[in-house]
Every structure is written in C-alpha cells, then in structure tokens.
Design a protein around this nucleic acid. Structure first.
Length: 626
RNA sequence: GGCCCCGUGGCGCAACUGAAUAGCGCAUCAGAUUUCGGCUCUGAGGGUUACAGGUUUGAAUCCUGUCGGGGUCACCA
C-alpha cells in the first residue's frame, strides 16, 4: 500500500510525538499494512514498536495515537485500536481522488522513460547445436520480462545474448553433416533449404547423428579392449587403459574409449583447423551457423522477443587474456610452475580458480571476464548487468563478480545473476537421453492450437478476419504459456504440467486476458463519454478494487528490485479476481444514477489499463476480443 | 564429503521480506444467472508451514541441529 495519506500520517506523528506522547518516537519504525478483511478499517498502523518507549500496553498506545490522529488528519473517519494494531478508516474522498488520478493516465504505474541509468540484460544464450526447449523458454521469458520491467522503472535497457558458437561441440555436427548427410536427386547434400527443415532443428539432428555413430564406435572399442586386443592403439594409451581397468572405473574407461574413436579424433582435428581459420572449415562453420540463427530467429519471432545486441563466443573467447596479465601485475592472480594462472579465493570462502590453462588458452571464466569488459567498453554509460542463467551456475557467477571486484571495476557491484530454477515435468526431470525434452517450437504450436480450439467454441470472433483470428490464438496461447512460466518465483524450481499450461481458468494468463476483453466490451458498448466523477457512498466491492489498483506502481518497482515478474503476475491475478467480484455483484451499465455509472466505468477502465500495462511487462498482449 | 538452494492442505503455487485466525488455483462437494461477454461469481470440506530446539511482544519467514529433495565442486561451456 502506498498512499499520500500514509506519509501525511507519518509526518504528523514524527512532528508531534513529543507534545502528545511525551517522548520522541523518531527511532521507531512507522509501519503500515493492509487492514485484515474481517476488521473495520482501510489501513493499519502497527503500534508494537512504540510500546517499549511509551511504557504502556499496546492497547493504550494505540488509543493514544488514534485519538491524536482523529483530530489531526481530516481524511480519517475513525480509528480503532485492537491488540497492537491501530485500524484506520479513511473517508471516501481519499479513494475517489485516487481513481481520478489514475483514470486517464495511460502509462499508469510506469516511471518516466530513460530517467535512470542503462542496464544490460543477458538472456537466452543458446548452444547452437541444440534447438530451444522448455528450459530456454523460462530463461527467455524471464529475461525479456525483466528487461521490460526495468524499462517501466525508467531504466534504459540493452537486451543481449551471448551465443555459444565455438568449440568441439560445433565441430561434431559439422563433421556429421560432412560424413553422413544424404544426397538428393540433384546430387546435392541435404540442407534446411532443400528439405524444408527448420535450420536449428536440422543442425541439431546432425549433432544427434554424431552422438549415435560415436556410441557405436565407442562400444566397438570397448569390446576390443575387453578381449585385450590392443593392436590399433598406441602404447601410452594402452597403458592408461590397463590402469583404469584395474580400478574398475567404468565411466573413465568409456570416456577414454570415446576419445579414442576416429570420429572424435576427426572432430578435434576440425577444431584445430577452425582455430587456424582454415578457409574450407570456416566456411562450413559459417554456413551451418547461419542455418541455426535463421531457425532461432523464427522461434524468437513467434515468441515476440527480440535482442538489441548479439555477442558471439567465437569473437570474445580470446578476450580476457589481457585482463589476466593485468591481474597478474596487480597480484590479484598468481602463476603456477606449469604456467597456468589462478586466483586464490580462499579468504572469501571459495576455492582456487583457474583462469588460463598451462597452454595459454582461456577457460569459461576468462571469457566471461573478457565479455563483461567488452560490453562496458561498447556501452560506456552502462551502470550494471543482469545475467539470466540457471541456478546451476550460482557458484560460477559468485566467482565472476568477485574477481571483477578484485580487479577494481566499480560496476562489478551492479552485476547480478538472475538465477532461476530448473523446470521439471510431472514425470520428473527433462533428460535429452531419454527423449523427455519438451521442444520450444512444438510446445508453442500446441498451446496455440489449443487456444484456437477453445476460443472458436466460445469466442466472439464473427467479425474477425482469418489473419486477426490467427493473431488472437497466438496471443492467447502464448499468453497462457508465458504467464504459466512467469507466475512462479524465478528462484524456485518449478513444475511444468502441459495440461495445466493450456487451461483457461484459475490463475492463468487467458483468465486475465478474458477479464480485460470483457471490460473493453463493456466500455465500448454504450459508446458514450464518461469521466471519473465523485460518487458517494463508495461500496466495499468498489473500494477493494481501488485499494488494490493504487498499489500498482509500487508493485512494479518491487518487481524490479527483486528481478521478479512473478510479483506482477500475482498482482494482476489478484486485481482481476477483485474486479470480477465487483463486476458480479454490482451493476454498471444498468445503474440508473449517471454519476455512479460514470464512476464505475472510469474505475473499470482504470483496471483494464492496469491489466494491459501489467501484461505488457510480462510480454503478454491484451486482446480486445476473445 | 565441503559449499549453495529448497521442504507450506491430495497436486501446483502465494504470503507486501518479522505481524492479527497462513491465502489462492486445480481436484472434490453444494449453490447463483430472464447475462453488463458463465473462460464468471458465492459457499463447504481439506494445514501442528518436514522435525526438534532457540531468539522475539509476535516466526512459514531469523539462528542451531536432524531428516528429505536438488545443484555444484573440470586445464568443459
């Protein structure tokens, strides 16, 4: 709750406590909260904190303060002290004034644009070998929503991602395509273009293909080893194998066999060629990446998500080495005898961490340091960064931010890891090996089709064109999906139930969208002018809606502070429920008194506006009809 | 094993960061409508907030321990 009247009461108390209580209370917290539903009152002052210095019972303290406020503040109708709580009833005009302010303010809840510093938000950041799945959806919706929430709070935002386009895994799908792609009747290798397969799916297919062949070859080798047939292998390897066999560590043995396959050797060879910028390999790499990006773009477009700036690991992986030498000079880092470079974080309760391999190549951490510097170089006015990455990397980001701080970058304290929990299925964890991964494209299509089915049955679509309808089904389907994934506190691991995600009742996106569409229909119906006029007495159903409505700006800033769209989602749901309760029990268009009718319409319109603004922050559209 | 996160009605989630009798949705049962768009609304049953201590006027929330679930501890990214 955030009202002008609260600060007014606060001020009055602080100013006059000496005269009417005999003591100075400025050391006590002045705390307001919502009044319980079953008690009379609008806002409640918690008086417990005063009891100690007033040296009286909570009841007496409440009575004293209540008496004072009754006389001092004209907007207060009455006060009542129960236990340690002072329940304050406000006059109707307080609420009516609030609606007057809210109504007709289209950007209600939002701060002034670009009034605050620039922040970069990183999210999505996929691996180019694997099509996007349900886990990415949570990541992407979260990152995108948080970006919008920060904007609504006045920040400038750069949305970005870092694409993992380099390394041995890419070489695997490149190799598989080279070796195994079939020719079509024109003697051409199959491509996304000549097969019609979406680019990211196409490349993903060859990654799986590689793993399949690799498995076969690995098993052959293991069998050979079992029979002590070591003819094809060099001596040092054989020695290694025998040692591991003695320890019976099968995992390690399999790992060794995998690395001994000709396929793996070829893939490694490709990586070396790539790093040497071999023209043929590089061209293949660029071609296949282009396929993937094309596929990803289609998915992002369907999601209604976009990015301002892309970073590619292939361009940043060498960065950070410079920082390492700087860190060495500052003695933040140290060098081991073999030439590898480390940082000792034991004082901070963490371990030693490697920053540069003995062969001089960089690791993940080094790259991330380099990328961070790169970004601050690209956007000098930037004040902070938010990394949307799963919570399995909590440790990594703790270390990263700590290193940046130790290197003396002041902005490091404004770097946050937006850490989110895994998405589980009712059947358990998603596992690619068991084929239980939910594909992002498939899921979106399913949800949109379902929305089409139910909306056709019950909707008000007669006047709509085919294109409009398709758009609407997308709005509803994706709205449901986004809401489902965003309504849960990001930090928490969550359960994704495919059946529930397409439900339309209960705490769902479409439920909120429906209420919005109904209000708009209400307002359009009469097509007459109305304004926020005063209408007393105000009914409790109305007051409940208004009370909740005025919290909206506060909710938006809370959600930014906590980097949590869930706060907005839950707020909207509550607002919609309160409004539906009002709608069900109080006539609006049928009301004969013009002032009351006008007031209720203005209030409804304000609610619709808040819904639209709130949904926008979740990346969800509010349909006029559905 | 060390470190980090999490345990809230059958299931899925809330609780304004310490406040009054712990809310909501699904599911179950019982009701409301000559509709302002029923994808709505009202009501009922269902809880010792994993367990045991502690701090506090006040604990789901903070501290300690136990149990259970997950993550992480690579010269992978």
């Amino acid at each position: 709750m955030f009202l002008m009247i609260e600060s007014k009461i606060k001020e009055a108390l602080l100013k006059n406590s000496q005269s009417f209580l005999g003591v100075d209370i400025s050391s006590c917290p002045i705390q307001f909260q919502k009044t319980r539903k079953d008690v009379d009152g609008d806002i409640t002052l918690v008086v417990f904190p005063f009891v100690k210095i007033l040296k009286c019972s909570p009841k007496d303290a409440g009575d004293k303060i209540g008496d004072f406020l009754d006389h001092e503040i004209p907007e207060i109708k009455k006060t009542e002290a129960i236990n340690g709580f002072l329940n304050i009833s406000l006059s109707d005009t307080v609420w009516l004034n609030e609606i007057e302010k809210i109504y007709g303010n289209p950007s209600f809840g939002f701060s002034n644009k670009n009034s605050k510093e620039l922040i970069m938000v990183e999210y999505s950041s996929p691996n180019t070998n694997k099509p996007l799945h349900l886990g990415h959806l949570r990541n992407i919706f979260l990152g995108d929503s948080v970006s919008e929430i920060l904007k609504a709070n006045g920040h400038k935002v750069v949305k970005t991602q870092i694409i993992n386009d380099r390394g041995i895994h890419i070489c695997k799908s490149m190799l598989a395509w080279k070796k195994f792609a079939p020719l079509n009747k024109h003697e051409e290798k199959e491509t996304p273009n000549n097969t019609g397969i979406k680019g990211d799916k196409f490349v993903g297919k060859y990654y799986v293909e590689f793993e399949k062949h690799l498995k076969v070859e690995t098993e052959l080798i293991l069998k050979q080893w079992d029979k002590h047939n070591f003819e094809d292998f060099d001596k040092s390897l054989v020695k290694n194998v025998l040692e591991i066999k003695a320890t019976e560590k099968t995992d390690k043995l399999i790992e060794l066999a995998r690395n001994s396959t000709s396929l793996m050797q070829e893939a490694k060879q490709l990586l070396i060629l790539w790093e040497a910028r071999d023209p043929e390999v590089y061209l293949l790499w660029e071609t296949m990446n282009a396929w993937v990006y094309n596929g990803f773009e289609k998915t992002y477009e369907k999601m209604g998500v976009n990015f301002d700036k892309y970073y590619y690991e292939s361009q940043t992986y060498e960065q950070g080495k410079e920082v390492v030498s700087k860190g060495l000079n500052k003695r933040v880092f140290f060098k081991k005898q073999d030439g590898s470079i480390w940082i000792n974080l034991e004082e901070d309760g963490l371990d030693n961490k490697l920053l540069l391999r003995s062969d001089g190549t960089s690791v993940y951490m080094t790259q991330d340091i380099g990328t961070a510097l790169d970004r601050f170089h690209d956007f000098p006015e930037m004040q902070g960064m938010i990394y949307t990455v799963g919570n399995e990397q909590d440790y990594h980001f703790n270390v990263l931010f700590l290193i940046l701080k130790k290197l003396g970058y002041s902005w490091a304290q404004n770097c946050h890891h937006l850490s989110y929990g895994m998405v589980d299925l009712p059947t358990g964890k998603m596992k690619s090996r068991e084929g239980t991964v939910v594909d992002a494209d498939d899921l979106m299509n399913e949800v949109i089709n379902k929305a089409a089915e139910t909306t056709k049955e019950r909707g008000h679509l007669d006047s709509m064109t085919k294109l409009d309808k398709e758009d609407l089904f997308k709005t509803i389907g994706l709205g449901g999906l986004k809401y489902y994934l965003l309504k849960v506190d990001p930090k928490k691991r969550m359960m994704f139930n495919p059946d529930e995600s397409i439900e339309l009742t209960g705490n769902t996106g479409p439920f909120i969208q429906y209420t919005y569409a109904r209000i708009l229909s209400l307002i359009n119906k009469g097509k007459f002018e109305f304004q926020a006029v005063h209408s007393e007495p105000i009914l409790s159903e109305e007051k409940e809606v208004i009370k909740h409505l005025i919290e909206f700006p506060n909710v938006i800033s809370e959600s930014a502070k906590n980097l949590s769209p869930a706060i907005i989602a839950n707020y909207l749901y509550e607002l919609v429920k309160l409004y539906n309760h009002f709608y069900q029990s109080i006539p609006i268009l049928k009301e004969k008194n013009e002032d009351k009718k006008s007031f209720r319409l203005a209030m409804s319109s304000s609610v619709a506006n808040a819904i639209e603004n709130g949904l926008k922050l979740l990346g969800i559209k509010a349909p006029e009809k559905m």
